[in-house]
């Protein structure tokens, strides 16, 4: 019987670079068009990466091509979400994770700031109440 260490391992791609299936480029085109629309018409848009039939390595390739920009954020609401601007201004990645650290959504948002970053009216109302209550205590 063949033993595990006798089975030859063949490296298909150099270390660190995973083979991808060419699905990253069409998404980059879609992002380019969305960015142009945002620049000229101010139309914000969002791409749900979970709805795309990516092959192994496609998502990594896309995120690698988009790179990292100047802003990194974390949001602590129902688990930690990571939000960062890519190397292309106006193109943001929103990576939502649940309390167990499992990804629940991965989106590319095109706009000045991802919508979820803005303070929400409901939370502001709540904040006013809490702040006022705190002042009363003093």
């Amino acid at each position: 019987m063949q033993r595990l260490q006798d089975i030859a391992i063949k490296v298909e791609s150099p270390e660190g670079i995973q083979a991808s299936h060419g699905n990253a480029l069409p998404i980059l085109h879609e992002i380019l068009h969305a960015l142009q629309r945002f620049s000229t018409e101010g139309e914000q848009s969002c791409i749900d990466l979970r709805s795309l039939p990516f092959g192994p390595g496609d998502e990594e390739e896309l995120l690698r091509l988009l790179g990292r920009g100047e802003i990194n954020m974390t949001m602590d609401a129902l688990g930690e979400s990571t939000i960062w601007e890519t190397a292309f201004s106006g193109v943001w990645i929103v990576d939502h994770r649940n309390a167990e650290g499992e990804r629940v959504a991965l989106q590319i948002e095109i706009g000045s700031v991802p919508q979820i970053v803005f303070s929400q009216q409901e939370d502001i109302v709540d904040a006013i109440d809490r702040l006022a209550a705190q002042l009363e205590e003093h």
Partner: peptide
Amino acid sequence: VSRRGFLKYCAATASMMALPPNMV
């Protein structure tokens, strides 16, 4: 749960229902 948390929950739910993000 804050409104942001709720919106995140909605984004995840929409994604799960295979709805486009503009439906959030």
